[in-house]
């Protein structure tokens, strides 16, 4: 398995061509693709083995305290 040393883990999701054809009155979550995973102990510590789903509270700008 590829270790997340580069920012390749999020490349797929930052590409606007990846997702096309949304329909009105639907909400969409893109399919996750297996790219990189954390080692098991780091996964336990972070709550996920997927770097692209590792969005810590208070650090990730989308999830800051009392936003």
């Amino acid at each position: 398995m590829i270790q997340p040393t580069l920012d390749i883990c999020n490349m797929l999701y930052n590409n606007p061509a990846f997702f096309t054809g949304p329909k009105l009155a639907h909400a969409y979550v893109p399919f996750q693709q297996l790219v990189c995973v954390y080692p098991p102990m780091k996964g336990l510590e972070r709550g996920t083995i997927f770097p692209e789903l590792d969005r810590p509270f208070g650090i990730d700008p989308e999830y800051t305290a009392d936003a």
């Binding site: 909400a27 969409y28 979550v29 399919f31 709550g47 997927f50 789903l53 509270f57």
Partner: peptide
């Protein structure tokens, strides 16, 4: 608490994928 919070985000992703498959 941080661990349990992180799991919610992963579950959201999985439900989003389930929704796409079902739709």
């Amino acid at each position: 608490l941080k661990f349990l919070r992180a799991r919610e985000i992963v579950h959201f992703q999985r439900f989003g994928e389930a929704l796409r498959i079902v739709e």
